[in-house]
Design a binder for these strands. Structure first.
Lengths: 333, 333
DNA sequence: TTGAAAGCGCTAACAA
DNA sequence: TTGTTAGCGCTTTCAA
């Protein structure tokens, strides 16, 4: 910056004024300074600026997601980025992999880079460690799952409602023995989906005690085995509600290999790529990650703009997509 | 930091030493300082530090990709992040959407935040504007496509080789009329894939003049129309090589709707999700985005570590995945 | 309309 | 082993 000032033959403060589009710079001076900036390929240092500036923003936000390689996270990321870019903010992203220790490390890395706000998918059991940061004025928005031990803005999918709706569709077709296949039950979203499923069964007067509920399915292979056993067992279900992407795929494989894909109904929570090209097409309860990301970013910037309202939870609706597999009636029913 | 020093009853420099794990701090002092840091929830400011530090790194890199919502980019991002995190670096990511103006804006945003290096998928016609930055010592690595107007490390897929291999497989099955369906031909990767295709035809002595080559297919719908017209026309091909994901999906739909999915062979460049669950499974030339990202990150850090070798282009091999659609022999052949 | 001096949070260089 | 002073690139405050 000193070089620019020297080349333009002005004081540093004048260069500063030009960079920040402040008033009180004559047209001639402005032109000279801009010329010097271009000639020297000068890029002002955002951080050096925010050091002294009152309320000094770095125009940077941090985003913590499951994994940037995961399409759900990617869509959230993109939506956040679009809002951020529009306001001249850059986005740091970090993957957590369901590992609580990474959450702390990543938050700390962002804080040390003085992000102006944080959007995060919590992993750890409590986010109380963020209280001082929140009191200090850093806006926090939780996505996908609510935080524990801290009160902050939150954006989640309508897990309970979406699951209940899927369950209702199966019940309406006449299914009475519907299986629920779930991931680790300690993951908040899984608990919600299971709850939506069981509540809807209850409302329909179907006993929830002997409803086949299988949990702890952590990947496609485990799911395949569990689904195969279930479907070949003494009391196979006539329909399956799978609570997550990878589980849905495992179930599809199991149904295929048993030749049951047109006899047993299947609805998955979370959309599956190419689902409409499979035979039958896979009916799903789709989430709206773009809407989640956009809502989270909007909340964050509202806080940055001075919004002092009490913290707010936004529930993003899910959408049922009919493609065939969820419209199979029970055999003989 | 001053507060920490005061609370611990030491000088600022001592706190600095503790933060940076420098030697010459007694165990007692260390404990007192660490206690004060914990009590005050102090997080050192990375940027303030790098301001004065000689060679001052911000331990931050910038990544420019097509879109963070795109799985190919997501995998590259993740691989880069893994290498970066291991070294205590944070990653800025930005989506370009094939828009040259966004490239400049994003690069500038990163430079103003003083990233220590840049990994980028170029979009604009020339990256000469990065020359001053490169001379200034910022390592640059281009991924997916080589840069124009600047000499820098580059990591790309083996587009020519992968396409030639796919073409050879079709030729070996007896196909002689093979169609190439491509995206915008000005995209470097498209040109390479087309070249691999045509060269292999040439090597087999098949005339490349009347080989059906259709370009400018920018989405699924355009592809569907073009493929339908081609397959219903007077001289339909017995095999199709599609040069990209979305195009492959458009072709699958067209084949399905014409009932030709088991009569016309199809090989796609780029893997397609769930491809093995389709009927027939879709054979593809798969890229390895993780390897691309990992190689790019390794090059970047090697430069940061002082590597002064001439710039180097790494070609990441592709992998042919046989799933059925590419193993269909020509009818009557 | 412009610029000089002080200071943001930190580290380099040097002294104690 | 520890602390002091100057200064990184910028903005503030205030004077010209």
């Amino acid at each position: 910056m000193r070089d620019v000032a020297r080349l333009a033959g002005v004081g540093m403060k004048t260069v500063s004024r030009v960079i920040n589009s402040e008033p009180n710079v004559s047209a001639t001076t402005l032109a000279r300074v801009e010329d010097a900036i271009a000639r020297l390929n000068y890029e002002p240092d955002v951080h050096a600026g925010s050091l002294r500036r009152t309320g000094g923003l770095t125009r940077t936000i941090g985003l913590l997601v499951g994994s940037v390689a995961n399409p759900f996270s990617g869509s959230i990321h993109r939506a956040v980025e679009d809002v951020a870019t529009e306001r001249g903010f850059a986005v740091f992203a970090s993957s957590l992999d369901e590992d609580p220790s990474r959450e702390r490390v990543a938050v700390s890395a962002f804080l040390q880079r003085r992000v102006d706000g944080l959007i995060l998918t919590r992993i750890g059991p409590s986010q109380g460690y963020l209280l001082p940061e929140q009191q200090h004025g850093t806006p926090l928005v939780f996505v996908d799952r609510p935080a524990v031990g801290i009160d902050a803005d939150t954006v989640v999918s309508d897990n309970v409602g979406g699951s209940a709706l899927a369950t209702r569709r199966l019940l309406d077709l006449g299914h009475r023995r519907i299986a629920f296949l779930g991931d680790r039950p300690d993951i908040w979203t899984m608990g919600q989906r299971r709850q939506g499923f069981l509540e809807e069964l209850g409302r329909a007067g179907v006993s929830t005690n002997d409803a086949p509920v299988i949990d702890h399915l952590e990947d496609e292979v485990q799911t395949y085995r569990a689904a195969t056993a279930l479907l070949s067992g003494p009391h196979p279900p006539s329909a399956i509600f799978s609570s997550q992407n990878l589980i849905t795929i495992g179930v599809i494989r199991a149904l295929r290999d048993l030749g049951l894909q047109r006899r047993v109904a299947l609805i998955g929570f979370d959309d599956v790529p190419m689902a409409d090209l499979l035979e039958p097409g896979i009916s799903v309860v789709a989430q709206d990650p773009e809407a989640i990301g956009a809502a989270a970013a909007r909340h964050l910037f509202a806080r940055l703009d001075g919004d002092e309202e009490p913290s707010h939870t936004t529930v993003i609706p899910t959408r049922f997509i009919e493609r065939g597999s969820g419209e199979i009636a029970p055999v003989g029913g």
